[in-house]
């Protein structure tokens, strides 16, 4: 099953370009977190920023000018609380303007809310936000593609804490039973829940073994290493293969801003002007540090 490339993407981005885009995404996130008065789920946004850039700007076969193209890859943000990070990654890919997000986010009648709504924002694939709901929907979409002999993939991004929901494992069984090699789960393994650090209250380890035991093809990925993300996306099994794949991405909640990293206080919050400057300075420093390495 061959897949045609959609959209006017031209040449695919290099890893260095993707890293620049991820920096831009984080900067925009912080800007929004500093200007919007309500809370932003900044911790879990920053942990998936690289993943979302790798998807929207490299891995996903999509065309922002034709969001209903049946040949497109589907992407479901099961951890719906990272919606704003997805909106910005989508805006940077040309789905809409970043200014639209900044001007209306969280306001009355805005298409851009805390959790994505397919009815209000048709560019997203599913309405999500209640955890544990995305993967079952993704199974349905992947199953439909199989039945119609369509070669696209269905991607679904979950938080690791979210995988405490039993429905995730129901879907894991269903995906394996239906031999959905066109289904790709991506887990943001940031090892933090809202109020606790991973393993302190709920034991997820041996985590890769759990997915393997459910019959999935398990790939471990450094979730902030763009080259590793690109490699994982390049090496996905063919969509017509018979096992779903999970990319377990090791990440850091709050990644890129030193005072937010692995800090339970920054699951969600808003930045004042002073903190925004401090956060931007930290982001710049972490980028400079990376370039030195």
């Amino acid at each position: 099953m061959g897949q045609t490339t959609l959209g006017s993407q031209g040449q695919r981005h290099s890893v260095a370009e993707l890293e620049d885009l991820a920096f831009e995404l984080r900067s925009k996130l912080l800007y929004l977190c500093g200007t919007y008065e309500g809370a932003v789920h900044i911790g879990g946004d920053l942990s998936v920023a690289d993943i979302l850039i790798a998807l929207y700007h490299y891995g996903l076969n999509i065309d922002p000018s034709n969001i209903a193209n049946p040949a497109r890859d589907r992407f479901i943000l099961s951890k719906g609380h990272a919606a704003v990070c997805m909106y910005i990654a989508m805006a940077m890919r040309g789905f809409f303007e970043f200014d639209e997000i900044v001007e209306t986010y969280g306001q009355l009648d805005s298409a851009f809310g805390m959790h994505p709504c397919k009815v209000q924002l048709p560019g997203v694939e599913a309405s999500t936000g209640s955890l544990g709901h995305g993967l079952p929907i993704a199974v349905g979409m992947a199953k439909s593609a199989r039945q119609r002999n369509e070669p696209h993939r269905v991607f679904c991004l979950l938080g690791d804490g979210e995988t405490g929901e039993g429905s995730v494992w129901e879907a894991a069984m269903a995906g394996r039973s239906s031999e959905l090699g066109n289904l790709v789960a991506i887990v943001d393994r940031n090892r933090q829940l809202m109020t606790s650090f991973g393993e302190d209250r709920i034991v997820l380890e041996p985590y890769p073994d759990k997915w393997a035991a459910f019959g999935w093809n398990v790939v471990m990925v450094e979730g902030h290493d763009m080259a590793d993300l690109v490699k994982a996306l390049d090496n996905l099994p063919a969509p017509d293969s018979n096992r779903p794949t999970v990319l377990i991405c090791e990440t850091i909640k709050g990644k890129g801003v030193d005072f937010m990293e692995r800090n339970l206080a920054w699951h969600a919050g808003s930045l004042g002007q002073a903190d925004l400057e401090r956060a931007m300075a930290s982001l710049e420093a972490s980028r400079a540090g990376k370039e030195k390495n």
């Binding site: 079952p136 349905g140 593609a145 239906s178």
Partner: peptide
């Protein structure tokens, strides 16, 4: 599609199918 004893995923999968027309 028989998903086995799993009502939640039965309905979730149905939603995914319906999103696809």
């Amino acid at each position: 599609l028989d998903v086995g004893l799993a009502e939640q995923v039965a309905v979730g999968v149905a939603a995914g199918l319906a999103y696809e027309g």
